[in-house]
Nucleic acid binder design. Structure first.
Length: 212
DNA sequence: TTCAGGATGCGC
DNA sequence: CGCATCCTGAAA
């Protein structure tokens, strides 16, 4: 069922100023919304990962590495950090205090609005594969490098409050096997059992929250 | 399962 | 210049 995005308003900035390891699971259940001339598309965030430079070998900002690409991570939190890997754009929320280069990667969303638009952008109609990966969701939502540095409290790209998940799990992050000890940090968070999660980890996953 | 695509950064 | 990367779709 499609959600009417006109009834949704962006989160207050305060929400995005939470410490990174608190923000990453807090973003689960929130809406990620992108408005373009083609229309509006939105998804519920179902999977995130925390990256905490400079001590995190898996982070682009490891060792305070400061380049044109990572520059925005050193700025005020609550803005978009987009970057291109191979042929795909990945979307992160800059977090941590100003001067601390931290971010939360959004790895998967569940489509809730503008689904036809997402299907057109992705040239495929399988509802699960539409947005179940960090490169897939940016293409479906129309997020690109023009969004770099955009404050996520404002149109056309913003995060809105949704429904908090019944259960959250955590485990190792994906795709960082060459990052030394950081490869095992349990900084990946997902909505337990959600079918739009990019990979279904069973071993070593930990359930963090289980409302009754 | 392997592999290319191709932006970005780093080291030689 | 060569190589690696927070990935993905197509080929084998």
């Amino acid at each position: 069922m499609e959600v009417n995005i006109n009834l949704i308003s962006a989160l207050n900035e305060d929400f995005l100023l939470q410490p990174t390891l608190q923000l990453a699971p807090s973003l689960l259940g929130c809406l990620l919304v992108k408005e373009t001339e083609e229309g509006t598309a939105a998804g519920i965030i179902v999977e995130t990962e925390a990256y905490i430079g400079p001590m995190d070998k898996a982070a682009h900002s490891y060792n305070n590495r400061r380049t044109k690409r990572t520059e925005i991570m050193f700025h005020h939190p609550g803005v978009a950090y987009t970057y291109v890997m191979h042929t795909h754009t990945l979307f992160n929320v800059v977090s941590g205090e100003e001067g601390k280069p931290e971010a939360v990667l959004v790895r998967a969303v569940e489509p809730v609005a503008g689904i036809d638009l997402m299907i057109n952008r992705r040239s495929m109609s399988d509802s699960v594969n539409l947005t179940n990966g960090p490169g897939k969701l940016t293409k479906a939502l129309g997020i690109n490098m023009e969004d770099y540095g955009h404050p996520l409290t404002k149109k056309p790209l913003f995060i809105a409050k949704g429904t908090s998940p019944e259960s959250i799990s955590s485990g190792k992050r994906i795709g960082i096997d060459n990052s030394g000890e950081a490869r095992d940090y349990p900084w990946r968070f997902w909505i337990t059992g959600n079918r739009y999660v990019s990979r279904h980890q069973i071993a070593d996953s930990v359930k963090l929250l289980n409302k009754s």
